[in-house]
Amino acid sequence: MKAAIIGDPKRSAKYAPDWSIVKETDKVFFDLDAPVEEIVEKAGDADVLLADAIAKVPGELIKRLPGLKLIHSEGVAYNGIDTETAKNCGVPVCNCKGMNAGAVAEQAILLMLGLLRDVVGGNEAEKAGRQLAVKQAMMVSGITDLADCKVGLVGFGDIAVATADRLHAFGSQVFYWNHRRRTPEVESSHHVKFLPLDELLAECDIISLHVAVTPETTGMVNGDFLAKMKPGSYLINTARGDLVDNAALRAALESGQIAGAGLDTVAPEPTTADNPLVDLVPAAGVRVLYSPHVGGITTGSFKRGYRMMWENVQRVAEGKRPERVVNGCL
């Protein structure tokens, strides 16, 4: 078994399980920007292609690896892989669905709490010797408990479910919108209520994004979406920056249309200092809390993901159908 791996060999060494299939597979590593020619030259006879979740796997590469039996994302995302060409070539594309659901849910709640409690402002005030003045000001302006918030989840996949479960423990009222409404049993077990999207936006104090990037969802958080949000509400994005129209969110923040935003991901990546969602006027900038797209990269997440990935490599080696196929192949 030979594997072409587009990603960091150090990460593979740290998180890959101590299994025979891992040890016995001939692994050839490539940088994220490795050209097709290099991959074909060094691993043209690869049986499997394992790719960083943000790696590009173009159709040209897939067509030039004739022995390919599996393409596997190292994470949950697979939008960089030409899934249609893979399907046409008879190659299943798989991901690690659910590997980081709990971790990303924790990150979403961290951003919610951080905004409600102004943790960045409080940290700076404490270091500057303004503790009492800021405390007195916040007692007058008020601090909202997460338990007193109505939280709206846009999408209801694995991460949204994990977020809902954790929000229930905080005492929040949790609502969701999804293309396909879940059964009453699922809604009851996760303590959520369904609302049409426009009602969700108007009703909730916090809107948290949990949909995949598709042609339909790209830029869905636009001026119209933001205008429908409840005045004084917050936007949380731990999904993908591509869901957001940067100019529209910038305008909503700078005008005070929404109270703030918690962003674990900003498009395009890598995020630069001149990004319109980073280079904000000071009054808007203090109402945004960032994290560098780290919600889903915990140690536990990677260990789960690498087990999922190598379990599928083992299945392919044994002539079995891999699990979590996302391109309808096989």
Rank of each mutant, 00 (worst) to 15 (best):
E187M: 00
E203Y: 09
H293E: 13
P270I: 02
S233R: 14
C96R: 03
V192I: 01
L209P: 10
V28H: 13
Y306W: 15
M99I: 03
L110A: 01
L32E: 05
N178F: 04
S189I: 01
E203C: 09
I81P: 02
K14P: 08
G262Q: 04
G7N: 09
C204I: 09
R182F: 13
H293N: 15
I21T: 07
K230H: 05
M1G: 09
A86W: 11
L201D: 03
N95Q: 02
E38M: 07
G295Q: 10
C96Y: 04
I71F: 07
G67D: 14
D26S: 12
V186R: 12
A55D: 07
R304T: 15
A248E: 02
R117K: 15
D118G: 00
E187C: 00
E38R: 14
G171T: 09
E318K: 15
D82M: 07
T218Q: 12
L153T: 05
L280I: 02
V294P: 03
P270H: 03
N246Y: 07
A137I: 01
L209W: 12
R250D: 13
G121K: 02
P17K: 07
A147Q: 05
I71S: 13
I297C: 06
A128D: 09
A273Q: 11
H210S: 03
E38T: 13
A101K: 06
V104T: 11
D242L: 13
P9D: 00
L289G: 10
L111Y: 04
A261F: 07
S172P: 11
A164R: 02
P17W: 14
D165A: 14
N327V: 09
I109S: 09
R240L: 04
R180P: 00
R64E: 06
C149E: 08
E311C: 08
T238V: 13
V57P: 04
V28I: 15
S208R: 00
I6P: 00
A247F: 04
P231K: 04
M139Y: 10
A160I: 02
L209M: 13
D242R: 14
K228I: 12
G67C: 11
R166C: 11
A239I: 05
T271Q: 04
A13S: 14
G285H: 12
G122S: 06
D158E: 15
L116K: 06
K23L: 05
L111K: 03
I236D: 10
T183S: 11
D47I: 05
V278T: 11
G319Q: 03
G102A: 11
